[in-house]
Design a binder for these strands. Structure first.
Lengths: 214, 214, 214, 214
DNA sequence: AATGAATGAGTCTTCATTCAT
DNA sequence: CATGAATGAAGACTCATTCAT
């Protein structure tokens, strides 16, 4: 109540951009939590507001609509993934290390805590064009692109000229995606051997199915 | 109608199970069509009824609820898949043929006309436990089981004793699933080379990434 | 259709009126059973048909609509009540016997097995004018009328000229009705002393609240 | 709004409970009106909303579901009844006054304006366990309890030791309930003599049927 | 008369979104 | 910017009733 024209200040405090960002994050994290546990369509704005500790209407100050929350979550996840994923020095890596690393990262990332959320996102990605685009461009394409780059280099350096790098790399990403999906669907074998997968898959891929097993 | 034929005296023919079945199919096909074009949640019962040419209520004479329609579609697809999939004599196949066949079937099946529907099913499978179970048990598990059987035999006969058949086969199914998903998500490369995939993937898997390319 | 050919006879057997009646009864009893256990509005025609062992549509050959079933049940109950209620020779009865008898009959009748059904009927009687009329005219009025007759006679013979027989008798019927209702609502005391009620109430009514208790 | 008064600085006044209460009341009164005229099952939420002057959805901000409206009405009636019923000093009353009062109150209360509504409530009470409980506990039990207390005292003070107060009081409440029901069912006699009933019934109860009539 | 599949009007209820305060 | 009560469109589902067989 300390005023020289205090009301104005009190009533319209200069909006700190940090606050805006953190509010967004706060809401997104609440959304992630609830989406993960109830799915997208079963989650109501009220649910999210309650968990976020804000009013229903407040959410609409930060997000266009309910779907925008999903897009926002994608951004958030991408952002974090990027921070964690130090632009690892792929350049000098040998193939085995590369493959193991490349397979391991997504598998352990999802292992951590994102299975439920992943379900929800995939679910909507399947059905929502905008989200599908976002997912493809922000998540899948960059990952694939990076690997393709590496594979080309490696093929060139090792005299494997005929390698269809563009398809080979899709083999890798499809494999990862498929593994996660099957795990999510309740496959027991995958759950039991989840940690060994990067290693085993790498050997299978390098030596070929008929190759020598370590 | 007034004829001497004996049929005329049959007054209450035991309700033709055929009719029931065909009505179910009629409704399911309508559902598939609408689901594919609008997604599950955006489709109303009225939409389906209209396309099927029946009243809203009639649908509930054949299906418990909206979700049951999806389960029914799963059955229908499984049924058809089973009919198409002659219990091919895997026993005598060489590895290359086996892999190509095994990869090819799902890819071409979905190529045909089911992409949109596949999206919807995967979408709900991710989020609906009952459906997930159905999908896993009816679609994924049988496929995987068959292949595992083959791989074990093959490994034994070809002296590759250490092969982790249980994981190797999951490599295959994950690969398939992942390829379809990436394609569904709009990957251009995959779309362009869809028909070559079984062949290319087979070579990559047999020879290993480092293997000799044909 | 009117020909001598045997088929005609076989196909349209002369309908035995007994059969009609028994079919009606069969359906009504099924209705009573289901109504009693689920209430009127929660009971579907299909429920009744199943219990009666007939098809849905058959019910509509015997009853105009769902409400008519209630009216029919009323008739059925009235009919039975009338048969049981031998036009007891009230004429010579002393007051105490009369009262005890008069109170006892409805209480034990409902005790038997009709509580649940009574609930349903009262429920609809409250809300459905036609049914209310039926109940009033077929059940309440006759009972009250009979008693009024007796009371007048008795008052005359015993020199109690001022007795407002018309109201006194309503005291009796209201009492009965009210007791049943309170019992139905779960009053424990009434349930425990149900059998003693006719006696106790009779004494209270004869002696007055301040009267000597036996 | 822009004045110097301190109130102006109160920005988010804790939502006035008064407003909530009044909105509830507004809706309940609308519900009572419509229920009374059309019955419970024939009344739609839309009907109530229209009469209350709110949107359909608004009703669900104040009541769980349609049935909760009935429960709410019970509360409202109980509340009002309690306010009217000053905890009258029964202690010092003589029996005649007590009885007259005790009988009179419910009869005149319902006379006023509640007959139609009473019908609806009784109707549902018969069939809905939750409502039945509410009615029993909030309406019937308290009334009965109060009277029982009085009767015990009175019996003790007047040397009527054998009085079955627990049953005697149920005679009273049953009588009341039954009278209202018969009146509701269209009994002309009761309607005509409604106002005299408390008096007449009191005399009948005190003197006994055989007693001297005033 | 019996059947029971088909009908489709009718309703409760949900919930994303708005907007006055 | 925050709030949260109000909104009302939308949809799944029920079920009494009909009628062709």
């Amino acid at each position: 109540m300390n005023d020289d024209s205090p009301e104005a200040t009190i009533m319209h405090p200069p909006v700190q951009p940090d606050l805006i960002a953190s509010r967004r994050t706060q809401i997104l994290e609440a959304a992630a939590e609830v989406f993960a546990s109830k799915g997208f369509h079963s989650t109501t704005i009220k649910d999210i507001a309650r968990v976020a500790g804000v009013a229903d209407g407040t959410i609409y100050n930060y997000f266009e609509n309910k779907t925008a929350l999903l897009l926002g979550m994608l951004d958030l996840m991408t952002e974090r993934a990027r921070q964690e994923a130090q632009p690892a020095n792929l350049a000098g890596m040998d193939l085995r290390t590369f493959l193991t690393t490349y397979l391991q990262r997504p598998l352990t990332t999802f292992e951590a805590n994102n299975f439920e959320l992943f379900r929800v996102i995939v679910s909507e990605v399947m059905v929502n064009a905008a989200l599908r685009d976002g997912f493809y461009k922000q998540v899948l394409k960059p990952t694939v692109g990076l690997a393709e780059q590496y594979l080309r280099q490696w093929a060139e350096q090792n005299g494997v000229p005929a390698l269809r790098a563009d398809l080979a790399v899709r083999l890798l990403s499809s494999l990862t995606l498929g593994l996660i999906l099957q795990r999510v669907m309740g496959d027991q074998i995958l759950e039991r051997h989840w940690d060994e997968l990067p290693g085993v898959m790498t050997e299978l891929l390098i030596g070929g199915l008929a190759g020598e097993q370590p």
